[in-house]
Amino acid sequence: MTPPAPVIEFRQVGLTYPGPPPVEALRPCDLVIEPGEFVSIVGPSGSGKSTFLNIAGLLDKPTTGTYLLDGIDTTTLKDSDVTSVRGRRIGFVFQSFHLLPHRSALENVMLAMTYNGVPRAERAERAREALACVGLGHRVAAMPSTLSGGERQRCAIARALVARPSLLLCDEPTGNLDTANTATVLRLLETLHDGGMTVLVITHEPEVAARGSRTVAIRDGLLSEQVMR
């Protein structure tokens, strides 16, 4: 029996923004992330963490190298197929939540099932489950403006989970949250990890990084592995 393909496999993946002046935001690097890993990505501001995450999340195409996601070579795919892979296999959590302000929590979560072929009839039920899973079962009808910061981020996590992705990418998910809310969100991410989800978290904060089973450090676009344990 062949072992399952790594979720992420970078082969000399790098990205240079054309500029001018050109910025080598990510220098060519190799990286393998296996299913079920919890990886934290650390580094100073402007070091290239978001660039790395955008490539991993198929929001940006690397300018060099080959990126395999779940064994699929994404660098040779058509744009429309890249979009389809992104919609079905990757869940995103952003620092600024990106909840639609005029839609309820439930509708925001349902939005994640609009483009990947989930029948309309199933969506509400699945969104309700996902919200219950992040502890927001009682606030399904709430508008984002009436949710607290932590609740908003949990709603965004529910949205990222509801389409059952194989990879959860979080860009500073606790950057806008206070300590108490940070703890809740981190506990939630850990629970997901325990359930088998592959999680990548960008963070500035050492205590967040400490939760990860693996830590990847980026400095000036250069990726290096820190083995914490």
Partner: peptide, 12 residues
């Protein structure tokens, strides 16, 4: 932002 989000959620 909404457009970016929809693209991230799989919209072409």
């Amino acid at each position: 932002g909404e457009i970016g989000l929809r693209r991230a959620l799989g919209a072409r």
